[in-house]
Design a protein around this nucleic acid. Sequence first.
DNA 1: CCAAAAAATTAAGATAGTTTAAGACCTTTC
DNA 2: GAAAGGTCTTAAACTATCTTAATTTTTTGG
Lengths: 198, 198
Amino acid sequence: MNSAHAKSLYEDSLVFSNIQKYIVLTCEEKEFLKSVLYEIEVPPKHMLLRQGQICRQLYFVSEGSIRAYNLDTDGKESTIMFGIEDWWITDMYAFTQQKSALLSLETLEDTRVVVLEFEVFDKALQHIPKLERFFRILFQNAYVREQLRALDSISLTTEERYRKFLDKYPQIVEKVTQKQIASYLGVTPEFLSSVKKK
Amino acid sequence: MNSAHAKSLYEDSLVFSNIQKYIVLTCEEKEFLKSVLYEIEVPPKHMLLRQGQICRQLYFVSEGSIRAYNLDTDGKESTIMFGIEDWWITDMYAFTQQKSALLSLETLEDTRVVVLEFEVFDKALQHIPKLERFFRILFQNAYVREQLRALDSISLTTEERYRKFLDKYPQIVEKVTQKQIASYLGVTPEFLSSVKKK
DNA sequence: CCAAAAAATTAAGATAGTTTAAGACCTTTC
DNA sequence: GAAAGGTCTTAAACTATCTTAATTTTTTGG
């Protein structure tokens, strides 16, 4: 991480309106967050996290997009999620447990992310107990989303899941290759190509 | 729900030690929770929630086990999760949004559950802000678990997922039919049977 | 703007998973 | 205690998906 590119945040940064969807921050609280958060700008194909490394940061996407994927021992990629503008993303398992990452995070284009360091995460939760509520709702929504996805993945056909994906993430479809969509759906690119033909 | 079976909780109830894994409750806070939570005892095959109903309750399993499943329009069952002793379970999507449930919840055996009503959930979070932290960690863990499961489901073979299931939930294996395990893995019981033969 | 690399498509043969159906084995239930 | 219903297994035929490999199209980097 090239900290030369780190910038501090403005009052009107997207991350504050994201947080204030669920809680209201006082001026002091915003000042505190401005003092511990920072934003970086990274080029396309930049690796924010590499599988195997300790995951020390949680990211908020201010602009651009990110892909989170796992590479198995046979070299097969599985895309776990995409992070787009106004989303939080990291390898949450590795971040919360401070264990080595199962996922790699790679930008899909020029991207700006707000960085929340693990120690800051802890400190911020103590300093602003309201943030517990914010993250409670954030994780609650994330859990619900994953549970619905699990249902889709065991009950729908590939074609149905592909349609849902197009429907739900039209912004992402523009930015990613079909190979990456296939690896998100859990099928080969060749098979996805044949599904599309219909 | 037969409220004639509702009992109030004791100080040493499992649900308090579950909550106190992550936060410390004062005596007053415990008293408050004892006044709003209650426990019910239900027989095997009892439906705690039916698909289509508004989901008004979150359950903590004190003893026994529960299966959460979805029935699609073709009559195909998909088991989303099992809830065992010391777990929280409900259709979290329907509960948090107060929408009609995608899932049904059915006991697998004689079961005792602590009931947390939706209005109480809200009230308790306001009355005991520390609970925000508790549920933040609960949902964080649930999200991580689901994310790992999503990875398994797109990257592993049925055999591998079956082995992992046996490994991870040995207590559940005793209590459920193979048909239900198959519906959790997203395959037919016939196919699971042929996988087992090896 | 060209050359090289990566992505997408197509098709053929292989494997994974489903469907249907039948028989064996359990449990409820009356 | 017999009948009925659910579960488990097996097998054959069928469908979905993968693997491999060749061809075309698109993207990337100098």
